[in-house]
Amino acid sequence: MLKDITIGQYYPSESVVHKLDPRLKIVLTLVYIVSIFLIQNFWGFLVLAVLTLLLCAVSKIPVSFLLKGLKPLLILMSITALLNLFMTDGRILWQWGILKITHEGIIMSLFMLFRIVFLVMGTSFLTYTTTPITLTSGIESLLKPFAKIGVPAHEIAMMMSIALRFIPTLIEETDKIMAAQKARGAALSEGNLIRRAKALVPILIPLFVSAFRRADELAVAMESRCYHGGDDRTKLKELKYQKKDTLALFVFILAITVMLSCNLVGASL
């Protein structure tokens, strides 16, 4: 169900990784994403797997929790793997009609699979170890230099944090509205596509009405709590770049170097 999704959740713990500066974590995550696509052989992924396990240990996040985050992506992953498996030209190992499996296809689909897995797991560390509020203040702070050219840094951060706050509420609300319409005999998963689309109306309209009502009430509540935009605003938790952040940066550079140097190892094998 909707409640089982762990992607984007925060995993409370008192680890070093949790305490790092969110700005550093955001930037490193971006570098990490790019570097995944630079890996050219399986040695790189092996090193990455070891590093991921190490990161789990340091940040005190159970591996099972990390793996659960992959569950909602199983379908996407299977489709990507299958497409690559059957659609890549090369040395044919097996053929049936237009379907063929090639040596290159197998390698390609495994590569894609690993990329998605490590992409999701790696980036998940950002949200697992950073509270939504810290994350948004990190983004706000990173975007601040761009405010001069008209990027609404504070507004973007505020919108994100409100969205994160209300996602669980709206999921719960959707479950409740669905149950209530089922209690009036609504058939939500029967019939053809058009009928199913029509059946969504009794769910979506109440959901929109409720979301607008909530937005309205929240706006009044924020206003009455002296909200007046980002000017002169202070923070409970000011971001401070500390020694441990520099240390983490060096560890990260080292890890990426090791990972990417596997490309050379692979090439020489």
């Binding site: 509205i177 209690a183 009036r184 005999g185 109306v201 009794p202 309209i205 109440p206 009405v209």
Partner: peptide, 17 residues
Amino acid sequence: CFTVGLVFQYPEQQLFA
């Protein structure tokens, strides 16, 4: 559900038509 009718809490929040 037609035999056992259930009125949820704040049922007006499910009006849609």
